[in-house]
Amino acid sequence: MKVKDSARIDLESSWQPKILAFLCNWCSYAGADLAGTSRIQYPPNVRVIRVPCSGRVNPLFILKALQSGVDGVLVSGCHPGDCHYISGNYVGRRKSATLKRFLEYLGIEPGRVQFSWVSAAEGAKFSQVVKEVTEDVRKLGPIRRWTLQPQAQKP
């Protein structure tokens, strides 16, 4: 028992948040690149997926990530008015707004899914955003598994 318990504690204390970031090709990905070339430090917890536009991020991507056990998701795109495709980030913003509110309503904590505007010139902001998201998710702890809880109650 003792060995098992201590192993579990070790596992818990070594837990690191796993964060998936969808970055738009034209702004946020270039922003992340700038952070790298400028040698700005940011937490290594983030895994980047490059997408053409923040409007390309299908809500299914975010949900699939959460279902698969990712602890947090960041979606980042060009600032309003700067979209390479004119209006992709505006359309994405409406999807994000409704999805975020819906997930929070279902009981997924607000910090799990986050959104940001990062331009190609904002390497420092990218690093700041990743730091904040990582800290938020670290505070929340590992994501709740999408399985039945024995103590589930009816409201």
């Binding site: 009981g107 709740r144 809880q149 103590q151 589930a152 409201p155």
Partner: peptide
């Protein structure tokens, strides 16, 4: 539903 704490909401939804 909204008035319930988040964990309870999630457990209810999953159940």
């Amino acid at each position: 539903f909204e008035e319930r704490p988040s964990e309870e909401r999630w457990n209810f939804f999953i159940k």
